[in-house]
Design a protein around this nucleic acid. Sequence first.
DNA 1: CATACGAGACGGACCGTCTCGTCTTTCTGT
DNA 2: ACAGAAAGACGAGACGGTCCGTCTCGTATG
Lengths: 189, 189
Amino acid sequence: MQVSEHRRGPVRSEAARVAILEATARLFETRGYDQLTMEGIAAEAHVGKQTIYRWWPSKSAVVADCMVEGLLLREYMSPPDTGDLRADLTVWIGGILNFLDGGGASLVRSLVAAAIDRPSIGERLGEALGINHLLNARLESAVDVGQFSPTRPTQPFSRALVGAIVLLALAGEPAEPETAAQLVDAVLG
Amino acid sequence: MQVSEHRRGPVRSEAARVAILEATARLFETRGYDQLTMEGIAAEAHVGKQTIYRWWPSKSAVVADCMVEGLLLREYMSPPDTGDLRADLTVWIGGILNFLDGGGASLVRSLVAAAIDRPSIGERLGEALGINHLLNARLESAVDVGQFSPTRPTQPFSRALVGAIVLLALAGEPAEPETAAQLVDAVLG
DNA sequence: CATACGAGACGGACCGTCTCGTCTTTCTGT
DNA sequence: ACAGAAAGACGAGACGGTCCGTCTCGTATG
């Protein structure tokens, strides 16, 4: 029984989809979230506005798909693993703080704004940025070596660490050199 | 040499200032931050738009002053002090999570949105909501009783705890009963 | 022949500025 | 001392501008 899986007519244009996501990522990184407009995306991607609205309900949904596709951030997401948890976390957070001071804070603010606008982005943000995956994996590895107590739940720990970083990004104050080490000392004990 | 401290003409109307802040707080709590408009505030406060723009540069600046005046939140900011740090933090965070589940999450999301729009609100948020003051005081108290290591910096610890709560609010998922205890276990160790 | 596409017109919401006429406070001249 | 002028805050709202989200074209594709 040959059943057509497609309606009649042309299928969704992959070229348009990619062009929209890439244009969004491009504008997002240069202009920030609130300067990002549907009309701007359409123009940048050489696409009709209706083509965006046909597949995404809102600006933040487009941004969310940009993250899922890995077009945003991707770096700064994977803590190193040299066997020394405290040192690894300090280096990792130090790198993130440098990124924040170098203009990354506004990008993070924009991502949080997108997450507020559409809570599902918040989950994707957390997952895509490795709150659960990469950082948790590093913590599990530390448990095996006896550097992290098995009684401490890793997921809430990761949430606290990432939450502190997000608050630092929201505050917008330049981080002191010792901020990373202090944060690690504070949460590791 | 009599030097006048005032320009000529009438002084700023305290009635208008209070009416604007109260109208903002009222609309903010019922409508949320993005539904809050300058024109809506002006109408609700029976005030000309120019009177708002004369004293505040933006919507988020008005919201910031609402917080400074204590017209927003105020509860949920003071952790108890029974002498048992772990229990106190668990109870305190549990109360906040209940508040978030009961509709408070969208209010927090709106406040974070305001903080993004104007970073100075972020600082005021932190200060006014007790990240530094009340929670730090509770931690210092715990240091005196030997329940919190003096080598752990209290300010970054507070930031991590509040950051975790903010992320929970942004995620929008209802909190499990054990979430508060898990978070405390994760950060206290 | 059904449907996605690029392009863009359209009404609506809200922004931030401005311009009214009115009222209140302080300075100036007699 | 006292009238009036000067300055500025006030409520109200008109105005152009930007962006939204919907819609309607004609074209291209399966």
